[in-house]
Nucleic acid binder design. Structure first.
Lengths: 309, 309
DNA sequence: CCTGCTCATAAACCCAGCTTATGTCGCCAT
DNA sequence: ATGGCGACATAAGCTGGGTTTATGAGCAGG
């Protein structure tokens, strides 16, 4: 009780890392949940049984909640433990996505499968695909380069990438493509915003006449919106990253227009609410692209088949 | 290069924790991204500048990617760094949800606001709400107890909880309620499943005649489904947790029926695909409940206003 | 009653990350 | 120019959490 104020019901602004167990601990907890045994989980993670025991114990101390019921015949999760484990799983899944993304980012030149993708796709979709690809072809080393449509096209045409993904309205010349998914711009607000309570869809002119939180002019998202509204979109603020737009919307600054890919989590957690809109074409195609004639083969083909679903 | 095989393009089955920076590091990275300075980020996290410098450096070594551009006038993220930071943000957000949930779970008896909630709501929705509540009323200590509708009702009636949340088809007697959200059971498959390519909605009888991955009989989810289909649901497998059902569906075992709350992330990451269904009433209300007459006041009322959006 | 599984405890060790102290570089105002 | 200031880097020493090995103790089943 010497340091700051980790105690009591006070919010304790002290960093998360002091109040949330580290990834190793969370993985261990998941393993215990799955295997029903501390020792088994320890074996799976390549540590010893006392290490696992002590780690779990220290997590329980840190959280102030009993997580597992120990018995001489195994360990089962507490009710609270089950809940905590589910929350932990979300962290670990995010970490897995991070991992495959980072791994792809690292392997520079000579990887077996070189992917070039637009920012949005690289950020939100690719980690999931790579996770699936790894399940199917564990030995494939993937490298990833992120950039806008032009950059993707350049890398493909100069043979620095085997397959690309773009999200624009048009396909760069010299490339063949196939639509792999449909993205949509959607209007979102904080749950407290009046629009969140609407039952009827928003009309196009209503959207066009309301100041919105938007990406800066020139961004892909903004281009699509302006095209759909006939260039009428009225900015409340213009921000230069998807993240900043989300943050502003969540904090209640106003309605925002964003790719549905970017707000899946926020919608699921009800931090943002989707506002239905009528009569505006906010859909855009996500496409896999490759140099004309050079149909993807091998791992690239596998990746495509995963994405087409 | 002495230990195992952290090197090369090989998948390296070694635990995540060795390949993903710890939460402290990720928080630091986010702070650097936001503040544009190592020293500033260090100050915000209450550590010294050399510590921050070294930590970031070790993350770069671990990931094999340069994350920040250092200059004598500040530090800016690399392109790769921006991407990594966005992935990191998802981990940190999951950790925040974990944190508020765990905190609520810990504070047993004498907390200011005692919440009882059904498992699904406690797992997927409450962390988000509590995060919002904390932003609005930072001093409120919240405690959480999770259980089925009956348990929630008991705790409310015995004054062990100030407000409850249930997801059943009926409201337990002795309680007043208000609908705060609508949940829906949805049919999902792995992207590779034939149903994922369907353009037309599934008919009710088609759903009823296909073996599905389901929760066990007696679970809330299963009750709703059986009621909607007239007790006809045909199980391919029956599993006893939402997580297990999700895992089976993701791995391609077949179509599954799950709460849309449970699969928000999977849908966003395209690990699962939603299959539209026609003519089946799979919606169910999520309700806030309280002892008849005792309308929530104070923090409980605030929480409700957050959830109603 | 012994064998085999489980988890707990104890003592020694090791390394990641921290701090303090100092150095270097570029910009800016005097 | 020149001193000052802010930002990052480097070096050396300390600390603590997590690890290992070694051992003990409870409960089941042949």
């Amino acid at each position: 009780m010497s340091r700051t104020e980790e105690q009591g019901g006070v919010p304790a602004t002290g960093s998360l890392a002091h109040r949330v167990p580290d990834l190793g601990g969370l993985e261990l907890l998941l393993a215990v949940a799955r295997l029903g045994s501390l020792g088994g989980a320890a074996r799976e993670l390549g540590i010893t049984q006392p290490a696992a025991s002590s780690r779990i114990r220290s997590m329980e101390r840190q959280l102030g909640v009993a997580l597992v019921d120990r018995s001489p015949r195994g360990s089962r999760l507490t009710d609270a433990g089950a809940l905590v484990t589910d929350w932990a799983r979300r962290i670990v899944e995010a970490a897995e996505a991070f991992d495959v993304g980072a791994q792809a980012l690292r392997d520079r030149r000579d990887s077996r499968l070189r992917v070039a993708a637009s920012m949005t796709i690289a950020e939100y979709l690719l980690p999931g695909w790579l996770l699936a690809l790894r399940a199917q072809r564990p030995d494939t080393a993937v490298s990833l380069h992120a950039g806008n449509s032009t950059v993707v096209a350049e890398r493909l045409l100069s043979d620095e990438a085997d397959v690309g993904f773009v999200e624009g309205l048009t396909v760069p010349t010299g490339l063949d493509s196939v639509v792999i998914a449909h993205d949509r711009l959607i209007v979102v607000t904080a749950p407290a915003h009046p629009w969140a309570r609407r039952r009827r869809s928003l009309a196009a002119e209503e959207l066009a006449s309301t100041p919105l939180i938007l990406r800066e002019k020139g961004s892909g998202t903004r281009q699509v919106l302006d095209a759909a509204l006939g260039g009428l979109a009225r900015p409340l603020i213009e921000l230069s990253s998807t993240t900043a737009v989300k943050a502003a919307a969540v904090s209640g600054a106003g309605p925002a227009v964003l790719s549905e890919l970017a707000v899946g989590e926020e919608l699921a957690m009800r931090r943002l609410v989707r506002v239905p809109v009528d009569g505006v074409a906010l859909a855009r195609d996500l496409r896999a692209v490759w140099p004309t004639g050079h149909r993807p083969t091998g791992p690239a083909r596998d990746l495509l088949s995963l994405t087409r679903g």
